[in-house]
Design a protein around this nucleic acid. Sequence first.
DNA 1: TAGATTGTTAATCGATTAACAATC
DNA 2: TAGATTGTTAATCGATTAACAATC
Lengths: 207, 207
Amino acid sequence: MTNDIPDIVIGRLPIYLRELNSLQREGEKTNTSSHDLGRRLGISSAQIRKDLSHFGEFGKQGTGYNIAYLVEQISEILHLTKEWNVAIVGAGYLGHALAHYNGFQHRGFRIVCVFDSDPKKIGQQMGDFVVQSVVELETTIQQAHIAIAILAVPIDVAQEITNRLVEVGVKALLSYVPVQLMVPEDVKVSYSDPVVQMQRMTYYLNP
Amino acid sequence: MTNDIPDIVIGRLPIYLRELNSLQREGEKTNTSSHDLGRRLGISSAQIRKDLSHFGEFGKQGTGYNIAYLVEQISEILHLTKEWNVAIVGAGYLGHALAHYNGFQHRGFRIVCVFDSDPKKIGQQMGDFVVQSVVELETTIQQAHIAIAILAVPIDVAQEITNRLVEVGVKALLSYVPVQLMVPEDVKVSYSDPVVQMQRMTYYLNP
DNA sequence: TAGATTGTTAATCGATTAACAATC
DNA sequence: TAGATTGTTAATCGATTAACAATC
């Protein structure tokens, strides 16, 4: 099962998918074109056609792409036709926000558990969940076949929690902790650090 | 003041800076090398040297880079020697989490105000702030000379709020709203969408 | 001095774009 | 049919890497 498709192409598919979903919700038309999509996203039409051509032929000359069909195809490519169970680790302010976020639904993910180590938080209701003790992390994750976890813990325990998650089979991590994590080769990590994002912009601002 | 340096190089500087800060906190040595830094970040040493060479010569043959000096230099390059005032728009769960986040301090940013349109939230204490009415957005942002805003509002008002922020001089936006925003050319936008980040990883997972 | 590591060059590798035949 | 738009090719553009003289 070799994989030739560049990461950077994979990285754009969710953006295409999101825009297509938004076109669907607008409901003004059933078709779109690479030119139309590109204009909306600030991407060249050639790039969109090239990206999609890695996976097959989804359009028709003259009429472009059927929106619903393309949504379906990209969803399959990204393995989003089933829902993925997701664990949140850390029930601080951020874990709280994530547990209440309803943007996961219909986009391929379902939060199924929230962990914390603070006895004051354990057992408390948080959105639709009861905060579980981090002691139960291993058993819960294995029983629910969870492959994806969101890290919202303090920086000093991030690597240890990561190790424990990897140990029980988590293969994808979305980390909000501002530190580089060490994981085996077959585990994906995606980072979200608001400060890093803002620092990338200040370079261009007049001080 | 032409600008030849690739965005992708600018994008790595905050990562270097974060790792250097972490080396400083460890306090085990005063110097590092491109090889050492690269190993910690999973980046080639050649790339680190090349990136830095765009801005000057910060190292010494044989001994590498003085950590404190390189921190200082990168901070200057990224315009982080002063603190930037930042506004948060949206006092929902996410705005709440951001208002309480203490990771902005010492990394170049200071949250100075939080806005919401919900009368039940306006006037309430949130962390160190009192939630202000979004009606006051324009006057407050102009008076505090705010150039950076964080968007944590519902999707249907995101573009309208963006327009208002741009109108009063905001030049950099960190948006947590899962939609493409339209802004003038001189305004930078950085997006954070957990679902997009997770969808980029599911491609690589066994369904 | 000997070992280490920089900054830089040239080669390699990879991604984007322009252009167009094919065809709906 | 005429107009529009795809998928693909080749050309261009840009980023990464390997290698090494310079030198601390």
